[in-house]
Design a protein around this nucleic acid. Structure first.
Lengths: 103, 103
DNA sequence: TGAACGCATGAACAAGTATTCATGCGTTCA
DNA sequence: TGAACGCATGAATACTTGTTCATGCGTTCA
């Protein structure tokens, strides 16, 4: 009476959430931003300089990262400081690097 | 003399490879396929049944997973058996599930 | 050998998305 | 107070990508 479902595959909501998270990580600009923030909190112009994209592109991506709580925002005067908002990200990135660096 | 580069962010090739890997994980069909294969090797029709997609869609995605060596193919008669081809995937998925299951 | 089966794949279409451009809003400072 | 600055954001565009549909190829078996 349990084999009407598909026990091998997690339920749709979990699958969907996982896919959403990985989609966010599937963009070079967002990866660069997160990597930059791993070391320290930075304002937008610093991030822009670090990742080598336009300020507009960076702001758009920061908005997405913010929405999924992967970065945190702190305002100080006319500056916006961003920092890493999640502890799992670094671990997941390190594991992905392990994979991609293999022969 | 080292500050002409951007030491916070890994080089472009690493970033690109990471993004490619995450893009692959950023699709519900591919996640379902990989989750199904975590338990055991399966042929295409079994996978198709398990993930609830058309055979064509599954085959297309298996081609991508194969190309990135995330699954392995073994032919036996007119059946194609697929299995997990990478040890990191399961760990990465578990970590992603940890993240998405948080409040 | 020929038909049924299992699977792969190219083309076409639809949907999602990252960047650029232009602009607006709030803050600072002369 | 008004101009410069830092940042956010909407619209438009170009591009990527997942599914469907149709079909082809190799294997099995009657």
């Amino acid at each position: 009476m349990m084999d009407e479902k598909h026990p091998l595959v997690p339920n749709d909501e979990i699958i969907y959430d996982m896919a959403e998270l990985f989609k966010i990580f599937g963009d070079t600009t967002r990866i660069k931003i997160l990597c930059a923030l791993f070391l320290k909190e930075m304002c937008v112009s610093e991030i822009t300089e670090e990742v080598g994209m336009t300020q507009s592109a960076v702001s758009h991506q920061l908005r997405i990262l913010r929405h999924f709580r992967l970065v945190l925002l702190r305002r100080k005067g006319r500056l916006s400081y961003y920092s890493i908002g999640d502890n799992h990200v670094k671990k997941i990135f390190l594991m992905a690097m392990e994979h991609t660096q293999e022969p």
